[in-house]
Computed example of a mutant assay.
Amino acid sequence: MRDRRHSLLNAAITATATAAAALTLVPTANAAPGGAAEAPESAPVASAHEAVPAPGGGEQIDVIRQGAPAWNAWRGRHPGVRPDLSGADLRDLDLVAVDLRGADLREAGLLSADLAGADLTGASLPDATLAGADLTHAVLTGADLRGARLTEAELSGARLAQADLAGADLTRAQAGSADLTGADLTGANLSGANLNRADLTGAELKGALLTDTDLNCRGHHVCEVP
């Protein structure tokens, strides 16, 4: 019995040694020239802070058509991107308090859009259509509105300081209490516009049409109120 146990133990030891030797002879997929195994390459992992490419102009238009909350969230994710909405058809959209600072809106169609309280500081809007748009208390400081169509637009309380409105059509626009200090209104059409209590200090009105305009404004020699 003892001899049988001894034989079984020797056989087990021999089998174990043989298996170990076999393992040492199996080459690894990433073996180095000297025989030492290299650690397997790990798959690249995307960083949580990796920049996501900003959508192009067409995609930006799709986002803004979802409304101000979706657009403002998009701007928060792309703070360094200047929005390109040039030529976009954005008529009748509800864009209350939308963030369009510095946006390119050349020749954009904003007919009857609700832009009350919107921030358009430094926006580019030459030849844009804003007829009938609601811009109550909107911020358009330094905006480029050359040749823009603002017929019957609501601009009450809007901030248009240093805005370029040369050649703009403001026929029957409601701009009561608007801030137009330093604005360029050269050649603008203000026929029938309401400028009641608007501040035109330092504004340029050379060649502007003022037929039937409510000039109960202040800060300019054309104003009926000094």
Score class of each variant (00 low, 15 high):
Ala11Arg: 10
Ala11Ile: 02
Ala11Met: 04
Ala11Thr: 05
Ala11Leu: 12
Ala12His: 09
Ala12Thr: 06
Ala12Asn: 04
Ala12Gly: 09
Ala12Glu: 01
Ile13Pro: 01
Ile13His: 06
Ile13Asn: 05
Ile13Lys: 12
Ile13Phe: 01
Ile13Val: 05
Thr14Ser: 10
Thr14Lys: 03
Thr14Ala: 15
Thr14Gln: 05
Thr14Arg: 09
Thr14Phe: 06
Thr14Gly: 02
Ala15Cys: 08
Ala15Ile: 06
Thr16Cys: 10
Thr16Lys: 11
Thr16Asn: 03
Ala17Thr: 11
Thr18Cys: 08
Thr18Gln: 07
Thr18Phe: 05
Ala19Cys: 08
Ala19His: 04
Ala19Asp: 01
Ala19Phe: 07
Ala19Tyr: 00
Ala19Pro: 04
Ala19Ser: 07
Ala20Tyr: 02
Ala20Asn: 08
Ala20Ile: 04
Ala20Arg: 13
Ala20Glu: 15
Ala20Lys: 12
Ala20Ser: 09
Ala21Ile: 13
Ala21Phe: 08
Ala21Arg: 10
Ala21Glu: 08
Ala22Cys: 08
Ala22Gln: 07
Ala22Leu: 13
Leu23Gly: 14
Leu23Asp: 01
Thr24Asp: 12
Thr24Asn: 11
Thr24Ile: 00
Thr24Lys: 07
Leu25Val: 03
Leu25Trp: 01
Leu25Thr: 12
Leu25Gln: 11
Leu25Met: 07
Val26Ile: 02
Val26Met: 00
Val26Cys: 03
Val26Trp: 06
Val26Ser: 10
Val26Thr: 09
Val26Tyr: 10
Val26Ala: 08
Val26Glu: 03
Val26Lys: 13
Pro27Phe: 01
Pro27Gly: 14
Pro27Asn: 04
Pro27Met: 08
Thr28Tyr: 03
Thr28Gln: 13
Ala29Tyr: 07
Ala29Glu: 13
Ala29His: 14
Ala29Arg: 15
Asn30Ile: 00
Asn30Gln: 05
Asn30Arg: 13
Asn30Met: 00
Asn30His: 12
Ala31Ile: 01
Ala31Lys: 15
Ala31His: 01
Ala31Leu: 01
Ala32Met: 08
Ala32Asn: 15
Ala32Cys: 15
Pro33Leu: 13
Pro33Asp: 12
Gly34Asp: 07
Gly34Gln: 03
Gly34Ser: 14
Gly34Leu: 00
Gly34Phe: 01
Gly35Leu: 05
Ala36Ser: 14
Ala36His: 12
Ala36Met: 10
Ala36Leu: 06
Ala36Asn: 03
Ala37Leu: 07
Ala37Val: 06
Ala37His: 08
Ala37Cys: 10
Ala37Ile: 13
Glu38Thr: 05
Glu38Trp: 11
Glu38Asp: 12
Glu38Asn: 15
Ala39Ile: 01
Ala39Pro: 08
Pro40Thr: 02
Glu41Phe: 09
Glu41Trp: 08
Glu41Cys: 11
Glu41Leu: 14
Ser42His: 14
Ser42Glu: 14
Ser42Trp: 10
Ser42Gly: 11
